[in-house]
Design a binder for these strands. Structure first.
Lengths: 197, 197
DNA sequence: TGTACATCAGTGAACGCGCGTTCACTGATGTAC
DNA sequence: TGTACATCAGTGAACGCGCGTTCACTGATGTAC
């Protein structure tokens, strides 16, 4: 059911996650879905969570593909770039899933500064925000990023990349040609580096 | 009809712009709408355009409220800040209209660098992007912004502010308390200033 | 080893709902002669 | 000045659609005695 819903979301975003259609894809009668989900919203929530997991997985892959030991300056920078690139690539290649991942967000605890330690670190990791935090922490470890500038830095960076993804996805910039899109991505990354440096 | 649709969008976003409901609000029979709109999508497009105009208007008000002559350094900076603040404020106070403004975007010509001159300047102005461009141009005029860094700078800035609006609006950060939200906005503005300087 | 029973995924039929849209129409308003 | 006519916003009734959801049910599977 969730896999079927995921395909619907891939093709048409969260609104396309229609209970009856998912059961049809599975080859089952509509009300059979109620064996597994309380209602349509519960199915949608599961599909949203799966979409978010998919995004997180792509980002993790992008990071893992960058060689170099933890703490190496060039590698740390490259890993931050890989995070942003994977995020934008997912938004471009899977607009339906991207929209779905953010359509019905699980409550996302804001944990900056002092409260950070309270959160189960494994859970935080398995999240786009968690991966971004780890990358910034590595930049601090590598000596590239001044620790005093580290606090809260994940949010403006996340905003910039997410904003670009949205504007060039469903947004007003969705019709720009591929080369312009690539340039926007480069400019945005340069902008982030300028602010970090 | 558009005003009624706008109220629906204000309350529930673009999906809430239901043709029958708009006619009901106007006190008219459903099919009467077809005197004025080819179909539901045409009504929605009109409502989206009106939402975008509303956003642009709020931003223009925010700019106009900043005293100081064109080219004054402090005033120029304040105007850039006012743009971002108005954008975020609109997204927070009118989430439905904000979502609607970006729901069915009019094709938005990308005009950076050489092509900029080709576009009717009046049309460009009456747009969030146009206002942002004007503010950045003023920073150049004021001598605050290096002209060599000006080109294409509007997009990362727009992305950062738009991303923050989305993440704290419908997005994963939508549940954060007001003070944290304010801090995120401050951090993002500081981030932008750091990249611009 | 065999029988009784609980579990539970899936069935078949139906419901009420609100939607967008089409049809032929009415009736007021303004204009041409 | 008065009559004929075009225009056009709105009417009334109806359509087919697909949706989420509820009901009482069946039939296979696994388990307890």
């Amino acid at each position: 059911m969730v896999a079927a819903g995921l395909e619907l979301a891939r093709a048409g975003g969260p609104d396309a996650v229609v209970l009856r259609e998912a059961t049809r894809a599975v080859g089952v009668v509509p009300n059979a879905a109620y064996r597994h989900f309380a209602d349509r919203d519960e199915l949608l929530a599961a599909v949203c969570a799966a979409s978010m997991r998919e995004l997180t997985g792509r980002m993790a892959e992008g990071i893992a593909a960058v060689p170099g030991a933890h703490g190496d300056q060039a590698a740390a920078r490259a890993r931050l770039g890989a995070i942003g690139a994977a995020y934008l690539e997912f938004a471009r290649e899977e607009p339906g899933l991207f929209a779905t991942a953010f359509a019905q967000p699980r409550q996302h605890p804001y944990t900056a500064g002092d409260e950070a330690a309270e959160v189960d670190s494994a859970e935080v990791e398995a999240t786009p925000l968690g991966l971004l935090r780890a990358a910034l922490d590595e930049l601090v470890d590598a000596g590239t990023l001044d620790p005093r500038r580290r606090e809260g830095l994940e949010y403006p960076i996340w905003s910039a990349v997410h904003g670009l993804a949205v504007l060039t996805g469903q947004g007003p910039l969705r019709e720009v040609p591929a080369d312009v899109r690539a340039r926007l991505a480069r400019d945005t990354f340069a902008f982030i580096e300028a602010a970090v440096a």
